Simulated assay, not measured.
Amino acid sequence: MNNLGFDFEYIPITPIDQNQSQNTQYLRVLARYFYDDNFTIFDLVEEYHLELKRSEIEKFQNVLDQMKSIFPAKEGEIFDDLKFSEIIQSFSNYLEVIFSESDISQLKETLSNQRFSVAFIPSNNKYKIMTIFAAKGLEFDQVIGFGKDYNLTNRDTNNNHYVLITRAKEKVILIDNNYYKSQVDSVIAQNHREPNNFYRYYGNS
């Protein structure tokens, strides 16, 4: 696609996105601070909704910057798991949350592999392919998804559907095989409305 003039960028799913927990968003923000030099400690504090004095922010920054000194582990060196655990403990204390062993393991794997950095650093490429979770907090002029991925009666896929729909500033396109449309028609009918007044449908199937 790039050879045809489309500046596509693939955003890989990261280890911290694979098994989502209640702490996944905390870990994503931390990973962005780690990878994105333009994302400051003040941005991080704002994302976490922390109310800290400047002196406390500086201490928090010192804790997190220690993480940058141990990743990636230099060739031939043993990773400093003790130091990493101490940093995570301090981080947990600031946020007043408890990270599971799985959370910590996924964070370690994400920060250990530079190829995941693209998932946390904003780019100017016009076209991006990514998971719904990775798109949280972002906005795009147009969003394209697949209707088959969304069961509107299932809580998890319904939450992902909400994220998909609310990422678009101008237009959402759902590629469908009639599965998604039938669900939307049902919801609209339950509210005593006419489906054709709400969207345009293209195709014969």
Rank of each mutant, 00 (worst) to 15 (best):
K74N: 08
M1K: 07
L64P: 00
Y48W: 06
A31F: 05
S186C: 06
Y48R: 03
N197V: 12
N178K: 12
F99K: 05
L64W: 03
L152V: 00
P15W: 10
R28Q: 10
R200N: 15
F39G: 01
I188A: 06
N93Y: 07
H49G: 07
A119D: 04
L174T: 09
V184I: 10
F79P: 02
Y48Q: 03
N154H: 04
D37P: 03
R115G: 05
L174R: 09
D36K: 02
F6R: 04
A134W: 09
E86I: 11
I88C: 00
I78Y: 12
L164S: 10
S205P: 15
V29S: 11
E46Q: 09
Y48E: 04
E109T: 11
Y180F: 05
N113L: 14
V97R: 13
Y202L: 14
F198Y: 13
S186L: 09
K169Q: 12
F34N: 03
Y180C: 02
D176W: 07
F71C: 00
K83M: 10
S92R: 02
F198H: 11
N124G: 12
F198Q: 03
F133A: 15
Q89L: 11
V63Y: 05
D37E: 14
N23I: 05
N19M: 07
M130Y: 14
L64N: 01
S205L: 15
L138T: 00
I129D: 12
E58M: 13
G147I: 03
E51A: 07
I188G: 05
N38A: 07
E9M: 11
F42Y: 13
K59I: 08
G137I: 04
L174V: 13
Q183N: 01
V143R: 15
Y26W: 09
L138I: 03
R54P: 03
V163A: 09
D17W: 07
N2Q: 14
A73M: 05
H192W: 08
S182I: 06
Q66R: 15
N154M: 01
P195N: 03
M1L: 07
N38Q: 12
E9S: 11
S112H: 08
Q20G: 14
F42G: 08
Q22R: 13
D103I: 01
K171V: 12
F39M: 04
K128R: 06
L52A: 00
I132N: 15
S92F: 04
Y180G: 00
N93P: 00
L50V: 00
Q22D: 12
I132L: 15
E58N: 05
H49I: 06
